[in-house]
Structure formats: structure tokens, C-alpha cells
Design a protein around this nucleic acid. Sequence first.
DNA 1: CAGGATTTGTACGTATGTATT
DNA 2: CAATACATACGTACAAATCCT
Lengths: 244, 244
Amino acid sequence: MAKFDAGPPITRPALRRDEVVSGIKDYIVRNQLRPGDPLPTEAELCEAVGASRSSVREAVKTLSALDIVDVRHGHGTYVGRMSLNALVESLAFRGLLTSEDDHLVLGQVVEIRQTIEQGLAPQVADGLDDEQLATLRRLADGMAEAAERGEDYLELDRQFHLLLMEPLHNDLIQQLTGAFWEVQSIVTPTLGAAHKEALTLTASLHLAIVEAAEAHDIAALRNAVAAHYAPIRELIASAKSVKA
Amino acid sequence: MAKFDAGPPITRPALRRDEVVSGIKDYIVRNQLRPGDPLPTEAELCEAVGASRSSVREAVKTLSALDIVDVRHGHGTYVGRMSLNALVESLAFRGLLTSEDDHLVLGQVVEIRQTIEQGLAPQVADGLDDEQLATLRRLADGMAEAAERGEDYLELDRQFHLLLMEPLHNDLIQQLTGAFWEVQSIVTPTLGAAHKEALTLTASLHLAIVEAAEAHDIAALRNAVAAHYAPIRELIASAKSVKA
DNA sequence: CAGGATTTGTACGTATGTATT
DNA sequence: CAATACATACGTACAAATCCT
């Protein structure tokens, strides 16, 4: 333990795989490639970077996990869409890991979602056009009907929250909204199954959001959003206290 | 090798690697492992999942990219910290790709950062204690001094924005703040080098944020945050118009 | 400090599954 | 259906890093 060899410079071991990762990234930027554009085959990449197939494959798998490249079996390798899928994977797994004890990550995700939607209330309240408002109402009505039948309405809920962010014309916010929604929908089941009353209540809270938006009432919209997240927050809090 | 067809009538298109990925994830949750806990060696994983070392390694590399596992050469494989590093990698690369044309992603990142900081202004304004406020002022002063010397102050800026979010006691928001900051700091240089005047101006805008926070004035804080992001937004806008 | 044991990293060869022509 | 091009998977051997005796 007492050997603190400060002598040699701290040059990185420079793993072959990491060099290949950088090489592929460089290739994409140098050639101005866009999502969907084809990349050289594995064999060509080996030749170009001077590495074995093993190293190239591992590098490609790393980039594939980040959605920087997209590999299609028997077809080829292409530039990926760089979605936020990696964020979802990582966060969802973190959420599942901590769900047994407290539901720490789930609570944090809910808080972020609420923060973003409340923070953007001004742009949302006067950015939604009539058609979007009509669609929102239709979605909220659909939730209520599904709840009445005792069914859940995951997809309706997802579309609702995505549409709410549409007036911002910011792809990144849209994708973040979708990512957090997905994380929540993956982790929430660890809290237990939803009751029919909870479904009905949540559906009505979505309708309240629509009505606030229709009135272009920013403060009301903020309150409606907060009310919408209240039930899930209580669920999380009660799960915590049960454990203690 | 058509002598394996005694079992399932439908042959799965399931890739070996993906099975290993799920297997490792399951192993972690089943054994309630926490970040830093050791995982079986590659050889043991091969035995456990019944896959070759190549497949196991590629699976591990996928999980490694998401920071779900952490591999140390010559030492072993451990449960990772599930940081938002994957988000940074993916977004930063996307930003670099689109930087040549417009600076679309950069603009979106800036907008998100501003949205979050403005949206959380209430909690920030009355959540910061005196010590935190003092530290913020010290950081802002440090920026001004650095600017005077013509130096940049990346690390001070990062600490400033992280500290600003500290009163929320929400790890995820902290990490998101750090992640977006990092993406911006990676992509911004494509706009060109910063002038000394810009550095001085931005430093003073940070000081304005501190003063608004000290006064616990929510509206002033929101305005100060907006003003803080105004210069970079103008830079991005002017870069766009130049191209057009 | 040396050297062996353990573990991950790299390379190569071969066979198989998959999609296009 | 055949041929071709490509990714996938397995197995083995050796190199490099880390730890421990």
C-alpha cells in the first residue's frame, strides 16, 4: 500500500477498445454523417483502426448502448439517433435497485417531472392552440373512460404529457419528458398495483390540467400540475413510512 | 447443428448478448447489490449464463457504457454508480454533430438549464443558507478575478450552478444540472473562443444571481437567471443567422 | 522487491444466423 | 433456391494490469 509511484507520467493505458470508440466517433464527425448513414463494416473498421474484431465489436457495443451507432444483424452498422434511451436504461435500473428500501429515485423523478411542467407553465398556457387543447381533452376523457372500465391508460398518459410540452418546440425537452415518463412507468409498479379509484382520480386531475390550459391561467395550471402529482407523491411517502 | 430442437417449437431471435445483459441485471437485483459491490468474474459469468466469453464481454461493455457495471482491468467487475455519464456522452456527441450547421442541441440544452433554474427559483431563493450564499458570492468573485486576468473559470461556474441546486436535496436534479452543464461546456467551444469582455460580463451576471438569492427575491432571481443565459443565447442566435 | 496467482484486455480462427440480391 | 455480404457466437491463446505472498 505504501508504494506511491509518482515517477512515471500518468499516461493512460490507452485501451485498444477506447481508441476504436474515439476512432469511430471521429469518423462520423469528419464525414459529417447523419443518423441512418451507413458505417464501414467491421472488417473495414478493423483495417482502418488497426484493431482486431474483438476490440472493434466491443467498441461498437459501447457506442450502440449510447445509441450513437445502430447495428442491424446481417445488414450493417449505421449512425444512431442518439436518443435518450441510455438515460432511461440507467435511471430505470437505478430506480429498480432502490425500490426495495425506499423509493428514492422514483420520488426524485416525480419531482423533476413536476418541476419541469410547472416551470414551463407560462409557455404551455399560452402556447397551446385550439387543436392541441382539443386533443388534450380527448385524451383526458379517454383516461376517465378507461378508468371507468377498470383499465389503465399508460399510452394515453404518455401522449398527454408529451403533447403538453409540444408548444415549446424543443426536441430535447420532449425527449426528456418521454424519458422521465418511461422511467416512472417502469419503476412505479414496485409500489403495487393501482386501484380503480386512484385511476379515476388521476384521470380527473388530467382534465383539471386541460381546463386550466384552456383558460390560459398560468397559476391555475401550476396548481393543477401540482395536484396531478400529489397522489403518486403520497404513495411514495406512505411506502417509505411503512418500511420505517 | 439441427439437433437441438426438442424443446421450444419457436426458435428465439433473442440474441445471446442481450440474454447475458438481462442475466447480469437480474443477478444484481436478486442479490440486492449496491454500487461498488463485486460481480462474478467473466469466467464465472460464462458458466452461470452458459455463454462464451466474447458474448459476456460484449454484454458487460454494454452495461459498462450505461455505468451499470464498472470494469477494472486486472481487478474485477463491480456494480457501477449508474451516473448520468451516458446522457452526457450521447447528448454531447449529438451537439457536436449538429454544431456545424445550426447549434440546435446547444440551444436546447441552454433552454433546459434556464427552465430548470428558473422553475426552481422559489425553492432556491428561500432554501439557501448563509454559508451557501457566502460560497456562491466567493465563486462569483473568483469568476470576476479570473476574467480580469483573461482566464476562463469553467470549474468555478460548474460549482456555482451545482451549489445553486443544493437546497433541493434532490440528487437527480443535481446530477442533471451537472450533466447539462458538461454537455454545454463540451459543445460551446464550437461557437468560437470567448472574449475577455464576455467573461467579465458573465461573471457579473453570476454576482447578480447571488444578490437576488441573498434578498430572497424570487422574481429578481428568475430575472437574474434569464439575464445570465442571455449572452450565450445571443451567441447561438447570431451563429445561426450567419449561416443563413 | 520479486514472482506467482487472478482477472480483465486483445487477437485470431472458425462456424452459424440473417438479410439482400 | 443459390450466392453474397454481414453480423453473431464460440473457443483458444497470449498480453497486460492488479493483488498478494
